[in-house]
Each structure stands twice: as C-alpha cells, then as structure tokens.
C-alpha cells in the first residue's frame, strides 16, 4: 500500500521505463490549466503551460507575447481594444 499522500490523485502517475527494463510508476505534479483570453476565452498562443517553479526561471519574453495585453487578451481581442481606444481618441479630438 503506498503512502497516504500518494493515494489521492493530486499527483499524476507517470510510467517510466528504467535502464534495467522494468517499468516504474513515478508521481509528478500536475500542470496548471492553459492560459485563456480574458475576453473571448480562447486558448492563448505563446504562453507556456508550466508549473510555477519552472515559470520563475524562464525569461519574461518567453512567458508571454511582447505586446500590450500580451498574455491576457488574444491577438484578435487586442486589435479590437486598441482600435476602439484609437477611435474614441479621434472622436474626442474632433470635438
């Protein structure tokens, strides 16, 4: 019987083949859910799905796209927002 902490499914089970030919069960931490757009809930591209400790060691530029709202809104929603903002400014300037 495994230890109590290994009996729940908080840790995912991974079967690994050892050099000796045996298959061994290892316990790995589960990855967090995929990053989604705050507006349209689409899965974001360019945002890695890693556990926080690994994300800490990554450079900032590889953790999210390098544009305004990168890692929060998807590219299509970013375009929409920037466009609306620009148009609001233009209208304000005309008045």
């Amino acid at each position: 019987m495994p230890r109590g902490m290994y009996r729940s499914r908080t840790l995912r089970r991974v079967f690994v083949k050892t050099p000796g030919g045996r298959t061994v069960m290892r316990y790995h931490r589960r990855k967090p859910s995929k990053a989604i757009c705050a507006n349209c809930k689409k899965v974001l591209i360019g945002v890695p799905r890693e556990i926080p400790s690994k994300m800490q060691n990554m450079p900032k530029s590889s953790k999210r796209p390098e544009r305004p709202y990168g890692g929060i809104y998807c590219s299509a929603c970013t375009r929409q927002i920037l466009r609306l903002k620009a148009r609001a400014e233009v209208v304000g300037g005309a008045q």
Partner: peptide
C-alpha cells in the same frame, strides 16, 4: 496611424 498587431502594437 496606430499599429494594432505584432510587437509594435499600440
């Protein structure tokens, strides 16, 4: 103009 897409967006 305002650039909307890519690295220079905004």
């Amino acid at each position: 103009c305002l650039k909307i897409a890519g690295r220079d967006a905004g």
